[in-house]
């Protein structure tokens, strides 16, 4: 469409630049804080980078904050937790969607509704009883306890179900005429066709696992299973007595880096995953 309104174009860019500044400013300040000493930070709020970046990065990796395990261990725990949740959710969701779409069996609709119900029961509304179940199963302070209760996923199941419904019926019929049974069809046809969806979902689910805070807070009491989110929270809480803001902000920036990098690097897939899981 021909549109010659220079003022509007300038306004558009002005709005967006303001938006980018609003969105980026807190992180900018955090990154600046990474480059100063705690003394500089506590004596004022610098807006320009200093020269302490490398020192702070080294410090944080060797840092053993009070009340939390060493930084590297928390990075490891968070990574492991996010990956297990991501893989677990995808595996159990894709197979249950497969069962619901490609089979007819008694209680199929009931199974669907049971999965649906998880949408209505976030962990926040069942904190103590869920904690008790995990405790009774002996899963406190374990990777299983951190992950297994989180890997039921109605949204991922719905996404796969939706996607399977768009695959032409004839695909499975052709495969059956070609002699493929249910496992072969799943492995040879359905999984390869779902690649993009799986990849897009991986991004969303990795972020989901990485940013968990309440759940690890409930099920871990021993430091060696603390996650990064718990660690940075611990460090930030400790600043009242020992305001090492340079180390805290370095840890915070590192803690948000992996998912942010993934979102930026794989933006197209990420947007697809986000918009489609919610629809």
């Amino acid at each position: 469409m021909v549109e010659n309104r220079p003022f509007l174009s300038i306004l558009t860019h002005a709005v967006l630049i303001a938006g980018v500044i609003i969105v980026a400013f807190p992180v900018y300040v955090a990154i600046i804080a990474m480059t100063h000493t705690d003394v500089t930070l506590n004596s004022g709020a610098p807006l320009l980078p200093g020269g302490e970046l490398v020192a702070n990065l080294i410090a944080v990796w060797t840092f053993d904050p009070p009340g939390a395990p060493p930084f590297w261990l928390m990075v490891w725990n968070s990574t492991l937790m996010a990956l297990i949740i991501m893989i677990g959710k995808i595996v159990i969701s894709i197979v249950s969607a497969y069962a619901i779409v490609y089979f007819r069996f008694p209680f199929r609709t009931l199974a669907f509704w049971v999965i649906f119900i998880t949408l209505m029961l976030p962990v926040e509304v069942r904190i103590i009883p869920t904690y008790e179940v995990v405790a009774n199963l002996g899963m406190l302070n374990s990777y299983a306890g951190l992950t297994v209760p989180l890997i039921a996923s109605a949204t991922a199941t719905f996404l796969f179900r939706q996607f399977f419904m768009t695959i032409p019926d004839e695909m499975m019929e052709a495969a059956r005429v070609d002699g493929a049974g249910p496992l072969k069809f799943f492995r040879d046809i359905l999984l390869p066709l779902s690649r993009t969806n799986i990849a897009a979902l991986c991004i969303i689910l990795f972020i989901y696992g990485w940013v968990q805070y309440l759940w690890p807070l409930l099920v871990t009491t021993r430091e060696e299973h603390f996650t990064l989110m718990m660690g940075v929270r611990q460090m930030a809480g400790a600043q009242k007595v020992d305001p090492q803001w340079n180390i805290i902000m370095t840890a915070v920036v590192l803690a948000m880096l992996p998912p942010v990098v993934i979102v930026i690097a794989m933006q197209r897939l990420f947007v697809k995953g986000l918009v489609e899981t919610e629809k």
Partner: peptide, 11 residues
């Protein structure tokens, strides 16, 4: 504009 989605609430 999109990356704050990936920032944890705690962070």
């Amino acid at each position: 504009l999109v990356w704050p989605y990936a920032v944890a609430p705690v962070v």
